[in-house]
Design a protein around this nucleic acid. Structure first.
Lengths: 234, 234
DNA sequence: TGGATTTTATTTGTCGACAAGAAATCGACA
DNA sequence: TGTCGATTTCTTGTCGACAAATAAAATCCA
């Protein structure tokens, strides 16, 4: 059989198109390859991925459902802006979810969860050591996602995942304009958190998570009040 | 001009199709008109709403994004089941969101918020008085949504809204199998909550919300352990 | 008759094309 | 020359049809 026949090439499994577009577009948005406000053109994406507009649109609908893109009716659709005005609402939610997920992880984790968590922590430590900002962001989010998963509450993990994603965009700004020296503290704090989770010390988990989260929030807030060089439009 | 020309009738504004389908399907799912497990047939919906499958599919994608329907790749799509096994995760999330949104409402509400909240409370009281179960469910959700809105944190209101929706399905079972006598207590508790919100007493708001939420959770849990007559497949 | 395999049927995923809406462009007139 | 209006253009929303994938039905062989 001539599978590589040029005349009739699907070249791609049936249901996979949307996922490819969705994943890639999501990463490009979160890594600020597509900065907030960037226009999203369906036909451009269609020819870029060599597929019809239909699967593209489905991916865009899902992205819009997660608030990563805004779509004006009958008019353009663009990458959603980072809302610097109501940033505190984001921080409030983030701190609370840090606390509750860590707390639940201490309560409900199973042995295999700890292995996964420790693996992510090792990757994070490596990223810090190598001063790889992008890897730091990604592995940090993965670590806390893993902790949240161990808490086994899909409602919290869902919201927390979205917050961490939104945070990826913020941290991207953060690490762009700062020296990458600070994060060693985060490695240590992660170690402490994992220890109390393993010990099933719920209250200590809550306390450490709170401190850890507020640590991060403080750093970011300090950056913004000092007037970091924001290279995105407000 | 012959706007009512039968041969070429759009008969419907351009971007409105999806919203109509989405809203109606959502309500039918939440009111258990479409019980969990019901198959969703695209072409059937297409001819029911007299439109192409494309806008139907977009509505379904959005519903799937909110977890209201499950879609098997390349195969059927159906109304998502109510997860009775992990119900406690739902209750945990619900209680916490009740607390945090009420707390934030006490902190951040503005005068006009109180008017809206009191209006919803009046409607809820009327529904209770008239023993209208469906109206009780709807107005209760609307009331607490309004309180959450007054807290002005879109992340929390988003999750809370989804939880209240999911709760509409549960409460539908609840009110189906119980006498509708209990809820007078809820009216009083609502009054107390609104009072402490208006007084900006954050701690009291938190406390009352916690009691109120656990009240509801207890009622529902009692129903299930007593073996309510569930008319849906497990 | 029972099990495996081929055939059919149904439903979803994808495509190309067309039409409607809104901004941008062009033109007429004061 | 400035402003208002018509036209053009460009993007999105919708449509009907086709193709792939899977389940069900039918057929064949032992």
């Amino acid at each position: 059989m001539t599978a590589a026949d040029k005349t009739s090439r699907p070249e791609r499994k049936r249901g996979s198109g949307v996922k490819v577009v969705y994943d890639l577009l999501r990463d490009e948005i979160l890594d600020l390859v597509l900065p907030p406000g960037s226009p999203i053109d369906e036909v451009q994406l269609a020819e870029r991925f060599k597929m019809s507009r239909t699967p593209i649109r489905e991916a865009l609908v899902r992205l819009a459902g997660e608030g990563l893109i805004d779509t004006l009716p009958n008019r353009s659709t663009m990458v959603s802006n980072i809302d610097f005005m109501n940033m505190h609402t984001y921080f409030d939610a983030l701190v609370l979810m840090y606390r509750i997920t860590t707390r639940l992880a201490a309560e409900h984790h199973r042995p295999e969860d700890l292995r996964v968590i420790r693996a992510h922590q090792a990757e994070f430590a490596k990223a810090v050591e190598e001063q790889d900002a992008l890897a730091m962001i990604a592995t940090n989010a993965a670590l806390h996602s893993a902790i949240a998963e161990a808490g086994r509450n899909p409602y919290f993990t869902g919201l927390f995942g979205r917050l961490l994603n939104e945070g990826r965009r913020l941290l991207r700004l953060y690490y762009q304009s700062y020296d990458d020296r600070l994060p060693q503290r985060f490695v240590d704090e992660h170690e402490d958190m994992i220890a109390v989770i393993a010990a099933r010390d719920v209250e200590a988990a809550d306390r450490l998570a709170k401190v850890h989260a507020e640590q991060i929030v403080d750093q970011i807030q300090k950056l913004f009040t000092r007037g970091g060089h924001l290279n995105v439009a407000l």
